[in-house]
Computed example of a mutant assay.
Amino acid sequence: MSVAASSTLTQQTGKAPRSVLFMCGMNAIRSPMAEVLAKAMLPAGTYIASAGVRPGERDPFVDVVLAEIGLTVGRHQPHTLDELEDDYFDLIVTLAPEAHHAALELTRSMAIDVVYWPTPDPTVATGTREQIVAAYRDVRNHLATLLKHRLLGQMPDKMA
């Protein structure tokens, strides 16, 4: 499924997917952030998980920007695809190019939709602590907007 097609996923099926996997490079920032946001936004009973292509370390800035909106990653520790308990999902959302390529390879012979939501890597931000945290906030807000519009089918509050 293409990125453009993913924007109409909810409209096509009439409902959000029942199981979603978010993937990024190391399951340290983007995919766990997306997992927490999705768990807060998607209907109860939706199975949501996250994984990375390669091992990573937990990033404390994720905790900071999620706490600002009353959410937490809890005891989440980064893990790879090989460490997932379940391996069937209705939808895999990739957030980094390497994750997208891995997901396409993984699902080559499976009937699983894979969509790519290009999401910046906030670890490249430099400057003061506030400037770095702002980059993480931007990623959080970007992911929340994508979840609302592409998985929940909500229209944007205002047109850019």
Rank of each mutant, 00 (worst) to 15 (best):
I69A: 01
T107P: 03
I92R: 00
V64T: 11
L106A: 06
A96G: 09
D87Q: 08
P55H: 09
S50Y: 02
S50N: 02
E105K: 06
T94A: 15
R129L: 03
V93W: 00
L106S: 04
A99F: 01
E57C: 08
T126N: 12
D86M: 11
L84D: 03
R30C: 13
R129M: 05
D121S: 09
E57Q: 15
A134C: 11
L71F: 04
V65D: 09
T119P: 06
G127M: 02
R54I: 00
W117K: 03
E85W: 12
E85Y: 11
P78E: 06
T126Q: 14
V53H: 07
H76R: 11
E98V: 06
M33E: 03
M110C: 12
P55M: 07
A44H: 14
Y116N: 06
E68W: 10
S50K: 01
A44N: 15
I69R: 09
F61Q: 09
L66I: 02
L84N: 07
S109L: 15
T119Q: 08
V124Q: 12
S109Y: 13
I132S: 03
L106K: 07
P32K: 07
T72K: 13
Y47R: 13
E83Q: 09
V133E: 05
E57Y: 14
L91H: 08
A40I: 06
L37P: 04
P32D: 09
T72F: 09
I112H: 00
L84T: 02
T119C: 13
T94D: 14
H79P: 01
A103N: 01
R129G: 03
L81S: 00
Q131N: 05
L104H: 03
T123D: 15
G74N: 10
Q77S: 14
T123A: 15
V36D: 01
Y47V: 07
A44Q: 15
L95D: 06
V64A: 01
V73W: 03
A96L: 11
E68G: 12
P122M: 10
P55C: 03
T94R: 15
L91I: 05
I132A: 07
Y88D: 02
V115A: 04
L106N: 03
Q77C: 11
L37K: 04
H76I: 10
P78M: 10
A38H: 04
A34E: 10
V93Y: 00
D113C: 00
L106V: 02
P55L: 01
G45A: 14
T128P: 01
D59K: 05
I69V: 11
V124G: 12
G74I: 13
L104C: 07
R75N: 10
T46R: 10
P43V: 14
L106H: 08
A102F: 07
G70C: 11
S109R: 15
R54Q: 02
Y116W: 07
P118K: 13
V124K: 11
G45S: 13
R129H: 05
L66E: 08
P55T: 05
D59N: 12
R30N: 13
P122F: 09
